[in-house]
Design a binder for these strands. Sequence first.
DNA 1: TCCTCGGTGAAAATATCTTTCAAATGTGAC
DNA 2: GTCACATTTGAAAGATATTTTCACCGAGGA
Lengths: 305, 305
Amino acid sequence: MTNDVKESFNPDSPPAPAALAAKVRTLAPSMTRSMQRVAEAVAGDPAGCAALTVTGLAELTGTSEATVVRTARLLGYPGYRDLRLALAGLAAHQQSGRAPAVTADIAVDDPIADVVTKLAYDEQQTLADTAAGLDTVQLGAAVAAAATARRVDIYGVGASSLVGQDLAQKLLRIGLIAHAHMDPHLAVTNAVQLRSGDVAIAITHSGSTGDVIEPLRVAFDRGATTIAITGRPDGPVSQYADHVLTTSTARESELRPAAMSSRTSQLLVVDCLFIGVAQRTYETAAPALSASYEALAHRHTPRSR
Amino acid sequence: MTNDVKESFNPDSPPAPAALAAKVRTLAPSMTRSMQRVAEAVAGDPAGCAALTVTGLAELTGTSEATVVRTARLLGYPGYRDLRLALAGLAAHQQSGRAPAVTADIAVDDPIADVVTKLAYDEQQTLADTAAGLDTVQLGAAVAAAATARRVDIYGVGASSLVGQDLAQKLLRIGLIAHAHMDPHLAVTNAVQLRSGDVAIAITHSGSTGDVIEPLRVAFDRGATTIAITGRPDGPVSQYADHVLTTSTARESELRPAAMSSRTSQLLVVDCLFIGVAQRTYETAAPALSASYEALAHRHTPRSR
DNA sequence: TCCTCGGTGAAAATATCTTTCAAATGTGAC
DNA sequence: GTCACATTTGAAAGATATTTTCACCGAGGA
């Protein structure tokens, strides 16, 4: 019906991306009074106008729908609908511009929304740092050792204990024999059993956690291949590690103890290790993974809705 | 309980800014086939879809206008018009800003360096999605409840169990009475003890893990404030949750089971919860944190070299 | 004063979006 | 397998929003 005259109306411009304010200024002289009011409103508050219908904008500016449409045309759009779409884009655009200003520390009186933003940002940063700082040669060696190990023992206490359990869980799921030791005494006791061909992994952010170093030392002495995942590659734990995987030490604040960001970093390393192993043992890992998935499906209750 | 509200303007979510793809992924399972086709088209080519009318999009996806509108509603918009507006915003956003879109899957023969890069990127993405999709009102309510709770019980099995332990550990460190239950039977047994003023938190990615839902239900019935941390806010678990915190559902691949990315998401939510509580109880939290830090320092062996 | 003409908005015409409703499809019980 | 029931779906009716039409208004010039 009316789509035949689509492009004959606006000879001058394709839909302007962000230079809307400028365009308004340029075209203002050639506008009539009412059109100027509309253009002004649009340039002044793109986001607000994007939320309005033609009628709404007409009322806001004290003009009529026809004038609004005419203004939209003059600005280079086929009609108001398209101007509105562009406006929405612009609004999102300038909103995103303010985003990167979130490098501040988390404060006690931060609103919860800021906490979420800052925390996510920090953790993203931590991940990037970790990925950048991770020695892929060491990682490759660790993967090779773990993939062919007779058994894998993992040591971690405190927050690192959870990371160790995570790794153990995952390795178990792809058919490896892995165990995360949480009790330091039992860890040492078990480490005595290790020998060449076995793998021992110590996880400690500080690099100097005695309870973790001790079993690793024993494993090392017994001839097992030892791996340290630590934020302090120069720490004592590295003495007894054949391969050291470095986690990043992110900023910590009063409200955000080191444990929090180190955990993110440790988990990334652990995940990389896991995927590396899964790749190398793909033949057995893939079926094992789907089998465990199948088994779990039965534990779910049907959706309610 | 976040059941949909028919007539009000903003049912459950404010117009999502950039987290659309994440939202689509989260809600996809609860969508019908045709709705999924629409959602897919929208997530796949926001810019293209923003240029289409309802009818156009319906034809493109081989569905009807009604279905398109339904999908828009499900995604949290009052109607298609608003979805379209948001789409335009998104398009502008990703055109100008960073939209690397290097979302290649991790393959079996990827070199280890690529694994690290891709994994870090994926997790960063997951964090961003989670942060964007997290309802800060619900979070605020959850924080308020937890901060003043007589005791906090946490339920999680499998991978979520570790997240629960992490949360419990942290809350304990700032002086709260928190416990992560790993045995479903004991969890139920303990849930019976809860009453008004207590808080129960269930962590389940699928939203339908019976072992976790059951204790939460008991706690709910007993009058405790219940919180669900789940990737499926429409799942059965939400029935018994006063506050639902949504984690993002990232893409999973054969080598990268869902558990891996859901864990990242869950941990972010848990961290936010923790920091929120720490803020509210700062007077007691701060000394408690430094005290536990002090206590641990003695467990470290001195640095070598 | 009267005429002309661009500017303007009310209202009609059209396009677009939303809702309703019944047919089609799937699902579970028997 | 068949039936009863619930869910999903699209066609068409209904409601809004946008665009177009057209007549009115008022400023400047003969």
